[in-house]
Write a protein that binds this DNA or RNA. Structure first.
Lengths: 239, 239
DNA sequence: CGCTGCTTTGAAGCCCTTCAAACCAGGTGG
DNA sequence: CCACCTGGTTTGAAGGGCTTCAAAGCAGCG
């Protein structure tokens, strides 16, 4: 059940058997939610963190006018809010973009990990720092990249992140979200996202339709988005 | 020397005498750098984290075309790269926007803290999660706020963050950076920042000149930027 | 006193938004 | 089985916020 999560952790660090057991004892049973469900509303005190097993989750914030910005997407194997362990309440909301399956990790148990497993604590700490690195890359996109560059870059990121857990390959990946939701990731309107998708399609770079991104030219996609996966920390770091 | 840092930590959590001693033993001697100096270049392996004692630091990333996005500003008392403890090398660079004074915390010593001081570990973990919360708010600004809203929001954020360490009050605060650097924070051009500054001045809201932000109407500034300090986690959280 | 870096202003243009409406697919009920 | 409804996609036309390009203004400093 938490295999994807372990795969992801082990890509970056060594997890021994005892630590794996500690993780398994920390994660509770699976629960399902429908698309659109808000799992964590902004500002609410929470006492456990949510591990995504299946589906897509989004962290988002919105403005009074109803405008919404998705600040990060979560793929299976991600903790959607491991940071809530130290923050207690979140500055953003978390919602399901598709039907999702999640499991909870009570903060009480995570606290015990910080007391008994220093290395595992650093591994989890790393995971939240990786989230922050993704936030920074999105800041760069939102602040400096053009619409088509943002879209290309996001597709590259998802190709890599989903690939780690076996949900993407060179041909593409499932992305069962609407153009409006994609626009909320990219800081654009859905109308303009539609035009950008047409550009990517007509230029033979990528094709987003029917809930799937087909990568037509991985090289061109990376080139347009100026994608450099350094920020995803894909190698094992020295201990 | 690290008083500002302790003030900041104690705003959010309790630090006992033993923990304070551990922190003091972790932080090395002060070093100065001139404005413009790159303290940490992107991608370089580093073995200590940088605590800012005085001056202003910026985390930034840039694109091939030379366009730069500042992803966060650091004020005195902040760790500029506590996350490098788990990341080892950074996905962004860190540079001095003004003359700065910093002190280093070797990762080896931080590791010892994770092994001997679980609570203090959580406090430091929290600090990096707070950084991420600021990144998210900037994503919202970059993605959805207009130029004048972004500027107003940033001034609000700096008023609060600098206020915590006694470097801002209701009248304003020192901000010794250029309009170009401000533009690099806001995802705008320096030309447009100049026009936005004029608007804020003419509307009697804020006045940025001579390396200082004068707040003319705190209420209007918050209103325009839709500033809600929740994401700065200004209260003590339940243990 | 002239150099340098930053600020300010103007004019033109473009990327993206806004508004509006048509189109389309899937699901539901008569 | 088709009419209808709903939510999402696609397209067009017009407009605006911000950029780009260019140059003048200004302050601090050697």
């Amino acid at each position: 059940m938490i295999d994807k999560h372990l795969t992801k952790l082990r890509l970056r660090d060594d997890i021994n058997a005892e630590e794996e057991r500690a993780i398994r004892e920390t994660i509770g049973g699976a629960v399902d939610y429908p698309a659109g469900h808000v799992l964590i509303p902004r500002g609410k005190e929470i006492d456990s963190s949510t591990l995504l097993l299946d589906g897509l989750l989004a962290r988002y914030k919105d403005l009074r006018g109803g405008q919404r910005q998705i600040t990060q997407l979560h793929v299976p194997g991600d903790f959607a809010d491991l940071h809530s362990f130290t923050l207690k309440k979140l500055d953003h909301s978390v919602m399901a973009l598709t039907r999702v399956r999640v499991a909870l990790a009570p903060h009480e148990k995570l606290k015990r990990i910080t007391e008994q497993f220093p290395h595992l604590t650093r591994v989890f700490w790393f995971a939240t720092n990786l989230d922050a690195a993704i936030h920074r890359e999105w800041e760069l996109s939102l602040g400096r990249r053009s619409a088509i560059q943002r879209a290309a870059h996001l597709f590259c990121e998802l190709r890599v992140r989903l690939g780690i857990v076996g949900l993407a390959d060179d041909s593409g990946f499932a992305l069962r979200i609407t153009q409006l939701e994609l626009a909320e990731c990219l800081g654009l309107t859905s109308v303009h996202v539609n035009r950008v998708m047409r550009q990517l399609r007509e230029q033979g770079i990528a094709d987003f339709r029917g809930g799937r991104v087909n990568i037509l030219s991985w090289d061109a996609l990376q080139e347009i988005g100026e994608f450099d996966p350094l920020y995803l920390y894909l190698e094992k770091r020295p201990r």
